[in-house]
Simulated assay, not measured.
Amino acid sequence: MSAGMVDWSLAVSVGSRLAGEGPEIGRAEAASVVQELRDGANRSTGLVRDFTGLVAADRTAPILVVDRAGWVQANADGFATVLAPVVDKLTSSGKAPSGLARSVGSRVTGLEVGALLGFLAGKVLGQFDPFHEPAGRLLLVAPNIVHVERELDVDPHDFRLWVCLHEETHRVQFTAVPWMAGHLLGEMHAIADSLEPSTVIEDGVARLGQVLRGGTDGASLIDVMGTPEQKEIIDRVTGVMSLLEGHADVVMDGVGPSVIPSVASIRKRFNKRRKGVGVLDRFLRRALGLDAKMAQYRDGAKFVRAVVDKAGMDEFNAVWAAPENLPSKAEIADPQAWITRVL
């Protein structure tokens, strides 16, 4: 049903054009980068398992080394899956537009989504897509990895393995904890169930305008798009995402020194880059909630380190036992509260 509300083909076309191709690289070098990233991801599985104690079978999810257009296509597919409950709610309520209005609306939305994907396609180094059947898939965006390693002037082989460690940790998280993907998708359904279809479009447009005018005290779209009930769900999701991102950062820094000689230099330079470059980039990061994403890495890593330092990795791994063991957003900022509740 989602195809009728968003013109996904248009979104992919626009996003791919805006993303560009990335740095120039010869065919032989490109093939070498692709192979090195595949090998790095496969090598990282055992490294992550040994460090974390999480057991995920080798090659349970495919590794896709993609260009920017491939990333756009994959994420359009992912968005369609995640947004399906919301679209179904609108469609079944009879509040969704129909006929010409629906056709025009889907193209407008397709353009907006395409612009978003086009911007992000040049930023993302890799990601794990947990909603791709049957067991997810790992995406590594080769041109972006090459671009950043050149921009930071770091050892390319060290940097590629460093990125693979982070992204492979996400693959291990979701494949060693098989209920995680369903849990997050359930939260998306919960948001859909809380929507009032008659006000979704009007409120969404008004709140978008507030963000773009800077009238929301620095809030992002995520911050302003929600009722109290929806904000409660988003807080739960924020807690989970902070855990996942922070855990991956802890793993890449924990494993890194034993296999990546220049890891300290890479981390220092990469952290500086995460702050964004230029006025437009910083504005878009704030408006799209990417600043909050950076906070998830920082706060989640502090949480993981605090619990592991106090209780050890084996005790920390209780976090993966069941959904009720996941930290809340408040507990991410107060690790002792999680230790008291769960351990």
Rank of each mutant, 00 (worst) to 15 (best):
F303H: 02
M225E: 07
I260F: 00
A306S: 15
S32E: 15
A41N: 00
R17P: 07
K329F: 08
P156E: 12
A121T: 07
C164E: 11
T340G: 11
D153Q: 09
L117G: 00
W320S: 01
R236K: 15
W338C: 09
D309H: 15
P85F: 01
G78V: 09
R273A: 14
Q35I: 04
H147M: 14
L117R: 02
L140F: 08
I266K: 00
T45F: 10
G78N: 05
N271Y: 07
D291N: 08
S220A: 15
R27W: 08
K268W: 03
V263F: 00
E29L: 06
P156H: 10
F283K: 03
I191E: 00
R68W: 10
M180I: 09
A3I: 14
L111T: 09
E24H: 03
R171T: 12
L326V: 14
A292Q: 07
M225F: 14
V200N: 01
Q296I: 04
V224T: 10
D235Y: 08
G99H: 05
V237M: 15
L243Q: 03
A321P: 03
K268D: 14
M5T: 11
W71H: 14
N144G: 10
F119R: 12
L83F: 15
H147D: 15
S194T: 10
L120I: 09
G136F: 08
I25T: 04
Q210Y: 09
M241D: 11
P327M: 11
G276L: 02
S328V: 00
L90W: 10
N317Y: 02
A322R: 07
Y297S: 12
P261L: 05
R107W: 01
S98G: 15
M188Q: 13
E315M: 04
G209L: 13
A295K: 14
P143R: 02
S265R: 08
D223N: 13
Q73N: 13
A61D: 10
S16L: 08
Q210C: 15
G22K: 01
P261D: 12
Q173Y: 06
L140C: 06
A74V: 06
G70Y: 02
I63T: 11
L125V: 13
A330T: 12
V148R: 10
A295L: 09
D314Q: 09
A135S: 13
R38I: 02
F119I: 13
A264N: 12
L343K: 05
G105P: 07
A322M: 03
M313T: 02
G78H: 03
